[in-house]
Design a protein around this nucleic acid. Structure first.
Length: 86
DNA sequence: TAGTTGACCGGAA
DNA sequence: ATTCCGGCCAACT
């Protein structure tokens, strides 16, 4: 397994279906480290690509996390557009 | 190599 | 409800 945590995270986040939101912890669990929620954010922040719908990743508290340029508002708009948000 | 930072999480005050 | 603290992990300097 030459895949690093970052690679796994990217793969997992990319598999998130449209109109669906996943928490950082869930992603961390699927990535292989249930306690690496923080690392997930750190990795995404350094690897945020258009291939990765990082906007579909939110807090486990149900709150929208941060986002590149704009922050929460951006995510809200995207989630609303995808139907993930009410 | 080691130390600091951060897009987190959960619990406590 | 808000604020603070400790813990885990990866990336950056």
């Amino acid at each position: 397994m030459s895949k690093t945590f970052a690679d796994k995270v990217r793969d997992v986040v990319r598999q998130i279906p449209k109109g669906k939101t996943m928490t950082y912890k869930e992603v961390a669990v699927k990535a292989g480290n249930p306690k690496a929620a923080r690392a997930v954010g750190a990795v995404m922040r350094s690897n945020f690509n258009r291939d990765i719908p990082c906007h579909r990743v939110i807090y486990s508290s149900g709150q929208l996390g941060h986002y590149n340029r704009g922050g929460t508002l951006r995510k809200k708009a995207i989630l609303k557009a995808e139907g993930a948000l009410k």
